[in-house]
Amino acid sequence: MATFVLIHGAGDVGWYWHLVEAELRARGHDTVSPDLPCEDDSAGLPEYAGTVAEAIGDRTDLIVVAQSSGGFTAPLVCDRMVVELLVLVAPMIPMPGEAPADYSAGTGYDREERDRYDDVVALFYQDVPPELAAEALKRGRAQSEARMGEPFPLRAWPDVPTRVLICRDDRVFPAGFLRRVARERLGITPDEIDGGHTPALSRPHELADRLEAYAAEEGPLR
């Protein structure tokens, strides 16, 4: 069985993954979903990766899964630990030397034609049950940007098999945008599921199915 290391996005908490964790644990897997130090002005990407590595401890057979801006942290974890597979979900996909603050300009996201939403629920949680969306908002934290101008420290993408899973109805990172970025930056044609930006809350069973299938294909379940 695998250990799924689940990394949340900006201003969020490990709770985001709780339904997917329940699914995976019911199938016999182990899970780790730490809270990143996103409110700490002294913490940057290396500290985020250190938090994840500390939570992993001596676990093995690691499948690292990152949501949204967690795509900046996950490769650093893969550089520190022995990882079987990296899965990026509705992700940001960094280039070597690119700061998170420069991602919008670097990918052309700031020029991307897309619908605009002022309401947080409409943008992030449009297909999440209302009670879960409300709980997610209550648990959300401020995201420090104090060190988001620092370059992504890796010189190259880690030598780990990588899958990209995008959401067809994502209002944050539209599917067309992520298809292009995944192709340009990783040479990957992403897989797709229905739903918005937060499938761990809107489609936990389907997402767990995908993660388990990826592990069986390329990870320690072979």
Rank of each mutant, 00 (worst) to 15 (best):
I166D: 11
P190C: 07
I188K: 00
R171K: 14
D209K: 07
V172Q: 06
S68D: 13
R139E: 14
A101I: 14
A22E: 14
P100I: 10
D40P: 03
A146P: 03
S104R: 13
A134E: 15
I7R: 03
R59N: 10
A66Y: 11
F72Y: 15
D115M: 06
R163I: 10
I166T: 09
F4W: 00
A156V: 07
M81S: 14
E150N: 12
G196A: 12
W17D: 02
G108F: 11
L211R: 08
P46W: 05
P130F: 12
A2D: 01
V89K: 04
T162A: 08
C167D: 01
V89L: 15
D110S: 10
Y16C: 01
P46V: 06
T189Y: 02
D30V: 13
P94F: 14
G108Y: 09
V181M: 02
R25D: 08
L201P: 02
D169C: 04
F72V: 03
P91C: 06
V120C: 00
D102F: 07
H18E: 14
A200Y: 08
E47A: 15
V5R: 02
A105N: 12
R155S: 15
F152E: 11
A99G: 07
G14Q: 00
E192P: 03
V160R: 06
S68I: 09
G28K: 01
F152P: 13
R27A: 13
G9F: 09
A99T: 09
R163H: 11
L6S: 01
Q67M: 10
A213Q: 13
E184R: 10
D170T: 03
H197M: 02
R179A: 11
G9M: 01
T189H: 03
I56K: 01
E113P: 05
D40W: 07
G106L: 10
T51P: 04
